[in-house]
Design a binder for these strands. Structure first.
Length: 209
DNA sequence: TGCCAGGCCCTCTTTAGGGCCTT
């Protein structure tokens, strides 16, 4: 059975919702059968100030945010768009914090786990000199983004990274498919023990294919 | 005005420290 993954990326006003940071933009990219087949993207207005450093980093200005749809509308739309598909993000701990904080404001509860492409990339590509998203994209020869630090571009690059990770694992360990359950396990598995865990999973995965 | 976090992971570690990664 083909599995769908929802790759998401937030641009925000800072690093922590616990200190008042809010999202300014979100993108979600649906990945299935080795390719991107749908995507959602929107700026959003949470009524917060965009610091100059963030505007310089992302190109998202206070004027852009002021004229964007309300944060509650956008979060409702992106939640509906991703449904119950497993969520994927680069450094998922960051996006998970903002996802959960905005869901809490809407009195919604997250339905699925977050898969972290950063944790996976550190295990699958230990030779990369950095595991930043843009560095990995260049290192792996992934389709280049027009610019980084915009939600849709970063989500698209992360989607290609996820596909590359899955293909790498399939090739190296002769897997017929790479499930979200396997990725959730691997991202918590020490790199040295990864092969052992995959062998344990591969028999069940291949027999059910 | 525009401050600020925190989990992972390595090592000169485990009674800790510091770099990486996200905005």
């Amino acid at each position: 059975m083909l599995q769908t993954f929802a790759v998401i990326d937030f641009e925000t006003t800072g690093l922590s919702p616990a200190h008042g940071a809010r999202p300014t933009e979100v993108a979600a990219v649906l990945v299935r059968n080795g390719q991107i087949y749908d995507q959602y993207h929107s700026l959003m207005n949470a009524g917060v100030y965009v610091p100059p450093m963030i505007e310089a980093l992302t190109g998202i200005s206070n004027a852009m945010v002021r004229s964007a749809p309300n944060v509650n509308v956008v979060m409702g739309e992106v939640a509906e768009f991703v449904g119950r598909y497993p969520l994927v993000a680069h450094n998922a701990a960051f996006d998970c914090k903002f996802w959960d904080a905005e869901f809490q404001r809407l009195k919604l509860k997250r339905q699925q786990e977050f898969i972290c492409s950063l944790l996976l990339a550190r295990r699958v590509y230990p030779g990369a000199y950095s595991h930043k998203l843009n560095v990995l994209a260049k290192y792996l020869g992934l389709p280049a983004a027009e610019r980084y630090h915009r939600a849709l571009a970063d989500a698209q690059v992360t989607a290609h990274l996820l596909l590359d990770i899955k293909e790498n694992l399939k090739r190296r360990f002769a897997l017929s498919q790479v499930t979200s359950d396997l990725l959730l396990t691997l991202q918590k598995t020490p790199a040295k023990k990864m092969a052992g865990h995959i062998e344990k999973y591969s028999a069940a995965i291949n027999s059910s294919a």
